[in-house]
């Protein structure tokens, strides 16, 4: 269970990206986070693994206070939270397998990383994860030789290497075409349904929300404006989330 209590983030410039946001995510849920660009979705996801330091509020994960964790505790927490990014964030010049193995960095001893060494089991595991997302044959190519959809699959494999209990997906399909979007989303769904991993996924397209999400939270200018089931987003709610002038396109 992930509990977010009164989370607030104010950036150095005074911009209030999150304003007193509170909600809960039971284990194993597929939660969609929706809202306009700049509404605070990315900030919210990054506060959960403290890539961004929250200004105030508390994040509890299975009773452990993430916001109060020390650096060393944070390493242990982060390695249980996989993350998938809109721009994939692969290291372009490294091989695909190295990118996937990077998911183990929270586990391996930093001293061995100096020598660029991973345990043999990890390498085998990396190949298995690549098989799972269907691109095992690309393992020894450079990451930037892959197409967008393939790169995102590598991103998912990297998250899977962490043996995550939760995956944060920050607009994972916003840079992909609709067909690829469904393919990536179904990988996330597979992880969610078969491995019982909670998924927090920010999305733009409501049809994807309807198709994949168990529950939805919506942000507008940093405030939580909706929390409920995907089917409850009617036209009124839609206007509330996206603003009066918005029109539904998908």
């Amino acid at each position: 269970m992930l509990q977010i209590k009164n989370l607030t983030k104010i950036y150095d410039g005074g911009v209030k990206a999150l304003d007193n946001v509170s909600f809960e995510v039971p284990d194993g849920q597929f939660l969609a986070v929706i809202g306009l660009s700049g509404s605070g979705k990315s900030t919210l996801l990054r506060c959960i693994n403290r890539l961004i330091e929250p200004t105030a509020g508390q994040i509890l994960w299975n009773g452990e206070d993430i916001t109060a964790a020390s650096q060393e505790e944070m390493r242990r927490i982060r390695r249980k939270i996989g993350m998938v990014f809109q721009h994939f964030n692969l290291v372009h010049r490294s091989k695909v397998i190295t990118n996937v193995l990077a998911g183990r960095l929270g586990y391996v001893n930093p001293a061995w990383s100096l020598l660029n060494r991973f345990p043999k089991e990890d390498v085998e595991k990396a190949i298995k994860q690549l098989q799972r997302v269907g691109i095992a044959e690309k393992a020894y190519q450079r990451a930037d030789e892959l197409s967008g959809g393939q790169q995102q699959r590598v991103g998912i494999a990297r998250a899977l290497m962490q043996d995550p209990k939760m995956v944060l997906a920050d607009e994972p399909v916003a840079s992909l075409d609709p067909v690829l979007a469904h393919s990536i989303m179904s990988h996330l769904e597979d992880i969610n349904k078969n491995d019982g991993v909670s998924v927090l996924c920010s999305l733009h397209f409501l049809d994807l929300v309807h198709r994949y999400a168990d529950r939805v939270v919506a942000l507008n200018e940093g405030r939580l404006v909706f929390e409920g089931l995907p089917k409850d987003i009617d036209d009124n709610k839609f206007k509330e989330i996206y603003g009066r002038d918005a029109e539904r396109v998908g």
């Binding site: 944070m74 964030n89 692969l90 010049r93 586990y107 990383s113 962490q162």
Partner: peptide
């Protein structure tokens, strides 16, 4: 981006430099 991604896996500072910074600056 890669820096953020590597950091998110729980890598410490040294590991982040080795796996996210160095490949980019070679």
């Amino acid at each position: 981006g890669p820096l953020e991604a590597i950091e998110a896996t729980g890598a410490n500072r040294l590991q982040t430099i080795i796996y996210a910074v160095i490949p980019q600056i070679v």
